[in-house]
Design a protein around this nucleic acid. Sequence first.
RNA 1: GGCAGCAUAGCUCAGCCGGUUAGAGCGACGGUCUCAUAAUCCGUAGGUCCCCAGUUCAAGUCUGGGUGCUGCUACCA
Length: 516
Amino acid sequence: MKPIALTTPLFYVNGLPHIGSAYPTIAADALARFYRLMGHPTLFVTGTDEHGQKIQRTAEQNNLPPQEHCDRIVTEFHHLWNLLDIQFDRFIRTSDPRHTAITREFFQRVYAKGDIYLDRQQGWYCVACEEFKEERDLLADQHCPTHPNLACEWRDEANYFFRLSRYQEAIAAFHDQHPNFIQPEPRRNEVLKFIDQGLRDFSISRINLTWGIPLPIDPQHTLYVWFDALLGYLTALLDPQAEPTLTNALGHWYPFHVHIIGKDILRFHAVYWVAMLLSADLPLPSRVFGHGLLTRDGIKMGKTLGNVIDPFDLVTRYGADAVRYYFLKEIEFGKDGDFSEDRFVAILNADLANTFGNLLNRTLGMAGKYCQQRVPIPHATALDPTLQPLQTLGSSLGDRTQQHYQNLNFRAACDTILDLIRDCNKMVDETTPWKRFKAGQQEEVDAILYTLLESVRLAAYLLSPIIPNLSREIYRQLGLDFQQSTWQHHQWGTLAPNTVLLSPSPIFQRLDPPSP
RNA sequence: GGCAGCAUAGCUCAGCCGGUUAGAGCGACGGUCUCAUAAUCCGUAGGUCCCCAGUUCAAGUCUGGGUGCUGCUACCA
């Protein structure tokens, strides 16, 4: 099976992890879990980007060495990922010494290509943004528009530049030949138009900044963001004990199957990153997916507004599966979305407690009473015209769901699976097994319950990348061990008759509406 | 300013190549069953499918214009 390597962004450690970090990480984890489900060797890469003046100054403000500041923040990332059941395979930190080796080697390749040169950069520099600003964009007294309370500093300094302009045509040609590289599709046009404008070289170093990776050719300079952070993806591919060389890094998992990122940094992945790899003569990733941004109750989140979503708080109160399900099911990945606690509670109760959880519960209850707590035999009966559609739906569910996962359309995946569950609930009411049991129609009851149990099992299996804990618990109640499942489980008929079932126990308790 | 996209039931959205009474989920209201987590199931929601004009036997679905909203417009991890 084809190896799959995928990434989240490497998150900047200028503060505690927030929902903007958790969101793509949840999605990436779900995708990675799905590929593992299918049996692909899968490498899920995440990590942190730790260099730069902003970090250095933040650390100074806290009277900490930068490395220690980063260590502390990274601990919080690990904590959050643990709470959210994020099963990453690699957590790369750009302060990792191996990363220095990789960036140096990569830099040398690009330098040898003649794509790096020294030039002068002058202008107003916002330390908070860590970037030069155009004069016309500034507010009064050279204050930065994004940081109105901060005055920009005048800088006149030497920077090394990367010859992005040289790759104008190559990048355009690449995107022309790979129309699915940028996803979702609407974002593609933005990038293409940006390229058409004409690409300008960008600076890749800062001078007099100690918290960073020195340039091999000029230690006075340290690498600036893109030639540092993006290369973290490559460093992450190194096996733990391997010598940090590009050859070792790129041997097994490269190239990446997908980079999952926020739409705000799409351009850097679809243009800069592509050009950098072209310059280094390395293969390009298969695609870059730019997800949408989140609002809170319809309002943009911000520290100043004090309306940020605290992922620690959320996952502590509701649990990992609930949080994962809401963000993946209720918000279309790739579009902007909204978080509202009212909706959060409503969706979880409706989908996980009432529709899904309750179906398992009522079905197990009936199996206990009517089938000696065992999986019954799916007899052929007069009810076949009623049950057949569900089996047909279930038989194709794996394939249909797979398409949605691979397109990172988690919402559609959930909807497709829930459709089966909803149909099952209808079928129960239509066939009234309790009446048939009293009437002595045992074979019909068996057929009904087998269809229900198998539907629940199948739904749990296919939903497991999103709600891993609930799926495992459903499997357990069905008398199966999720750990031992294989991709064969996407097929209808996996549940073996006579399997001993457990007594029903709600897998997801209804949530109380949030108090105002 | 320029370019692009979007505008469908209270909410979130489906509606492919134009074609009978415009759909789903959620929420709300009413009812039902009783296997079940006061869950389920059924019914109701009378929606100018943003507005105007046009093409067509026929437009939510195509064309033009208008209004509104959003995104992109270079160094924002």
